[in-house]
Write a protein that binds this DNA or RNA. Structure first.
Lengths: 324, 324
DNA sequence: TGAGTTTTCGCGCCCTTG
DNA sequence: CAAGGGCGCGAAAACTCA
């Protein structure tokens, strides 16, 4: 019973009719966890709460949720990053820019797109793997933006070193280039991330139709979970899970709603995973059913010693130049 | 079938005979299957790195640990977490401050490693590692300790910085340089994180030998994964997983080695989960096999929209109160 | 290229906890 | 009993290699 069904993509269409597995777990909880207003999609930020109760017939479990919201929040939607795949279309990050929009720090995001030529190569390489999430995440549509990021206060840099690919060692110089590129890219990511923080999953609009790993899985859900919790400040598992399930289900995805195929049960299970990791890092705290956003512990923050970093950057930069 | 086996505490003894679950994935295929030492915690084993090869018959599947990877990946042994060699092994978080002290932060495979004198220890490290500090510290008995966290957020931290040393990629010097630079950069982050790590669950003093959920599971592993990545700055899945597996395996826990019971496979699987969540949050980035610590994005910090959030929080809180 | 391996990790069964 | 979450099978993705 239950399981397997989900994979088929299209079932989404028939939403209600979905063969959804018995979701034992979900059932709308009764207790209304305090806070949240149920239902409402209040557009404005606050909204959200799990309220959507689904509860349908007792037996039925599909996803009745409603509302959805996505306001600000953080992290870049994973998927967005996708674009690279598009053949011609180019990496231009579509709406991506939006994410950043509101970020206070802003200043960044100019989607200009010129793009560093070299990077392209990297991209290509990555592209082939269609969608590894990682690649998607790291994909660098925006390398160019690096500069800007700099401005950003703290981006971080470390990364750069990334490397080549393939198991064998790549040739040196090639490697170097990669490294550099990688570095740049990463910077970008960082930025985005920050900015994006604002826009949350919204962007999913695009890309998303993947249905592939990039569009589902822990990686995908955890970002959303984090954003939701961050946004709400205090919430509950059910609230998060319900919203997430709802969002996903609703996900227009233009073409198809295959996505919704993902079973709620699965999403719910994943939410636990994501929350646990966040809890482990003390980014959120949970007491009973109440989940609180704690924020990032300072320790993890990246800017403390900015200056040091700055130095390093310069240093690096120098190297970069020399190499190139 | 399968599963459950591990839980029994002693199976360690009969290593080979373990009913080990079919480890499909792992299988040591030809390439030197390295296995961990299943059996007893051999105290002195030098092992450490993925190198341990024990190779068993091809068929055998026991804990084939893992890595075997080929060249490049071979990371040096890890660890850093030195000090806790103490025999008795108390879980008590020692001087937390120390842990990181000498960490060589080895990261990716540097075969040589001359620079750090200590490295030699690494070899032995296995022994000392016995209880990785991290694990000890982090062991979370605390699932509930929310309170602390709160305080944590800003705790402060003493940081000790570690000094890095080399890491190097074998070939190309250029690359090496980059790496070095990277390393430096990362140090910065690392530091923060490290500090944090220290205090993190300090309170755990007790507990650890739980074997219960507090001592295992995603929640437990993710903290460790995070700390490791933060510390190393740049690393790889295998490095992290191997270390983690090793630490856990070694974990003396005085009384029993029940812990080691945790199958490596499980740990490895969990590491993927943890890394994915961190990736989703842009705390780390992965490119190919290289995992980089990015640090926490500012967006998560609580200031920007703080006010907004704060408002909501209050609002919610109020509700909470009323409801409860 | 395609077959064969490995690495990742989706997914959800089912055992713990509350 | 329901919420929580350990755990690991099996399949997709990423690589290797001939």
């Amino acid at each position: 019973m239950t399981s397997s069904v989900f994979n088929s993509d299209n079932n989404a269409a028939m939403v209600s009719s979905l063969p959804s597995p018995p979701i034992s777990n979900r059932q709308s909880t009764n207790k209304t966890p305090a806070f949240m207003l149920d239902q409402a999609p209040s557009p404005s930020s606050k909204c959200c709460n799990r309220s959507l109760v689904s509860d349908i017939g007792s037996t039925n479990e599909l996803r009745p949720l409603l509302y959805q919201q996505q306001d600000e929040c953080c992290l870049p939607p994973i998927q967005n990053v996708v674009f690279l795949n598009t053949p011609t279309s180019s990496p231009s990050p579509p709406p991506s820019s939006c994410y950043y929009s509101s970020s206070p720090s802003s200043s960044i995001e100019s989607p200009s797109t010129p793009s560093a030529s070299d990077e392209e190569d990297l991209l290509n390489s990555s592209i082939r793997r269609k969608g590894s999430i990682a690649s998607l995440l790291n994909s660098d549509p925006e390398l160019k933006q690096l500069d800007e990021e700099e401005s950003r206060c703290n981006y971080q840099s470390h990364f750069f070193d990334n490397i080549p690919m393939k198991r064998g060692r790549p040739s040196t110089e090639a490697h170097i280039d990669n490294v550099v590129v990688a570095y740049k890219k990463q910077r970008i990511n960082t930025l985005d991330c920050e900015k994006q923080a604002c826009q949350s999953s919204v962007s999913n609009t695009m890309a998303s139709n993947e249905t592939t790993r990039a569009a589902k899985g822990l990686r995908h859900f955890s970002k959303q979970v984090c954003d939701k919790v961050a946004k709400k400040g205090i919430t509950t598992y059910n609230e998060v899970a319900d919203e997430l399930a709802f969002d996903i289900q609703q996900h227009p995805t233009v073409d198809g709603q295959q996505k919704q195929a993902y079973d709620q049960k699965n999403i719910r299970r994943r939410v636990y995973d994501a929350l646990n990791v966040l809890m482990a890092m003390n980014i959120i705290a949970k007491d009973k059913k109440v989940i609180k956003w704690l924020g990032i512990p300072d320790c993890y923050r990246r800017n403390n010693e900015n200056q040091n970093r700055a130095e390093l950057l310069n240093l690096i930069r120098v190297e970069e130049v020399s190499h190139i």
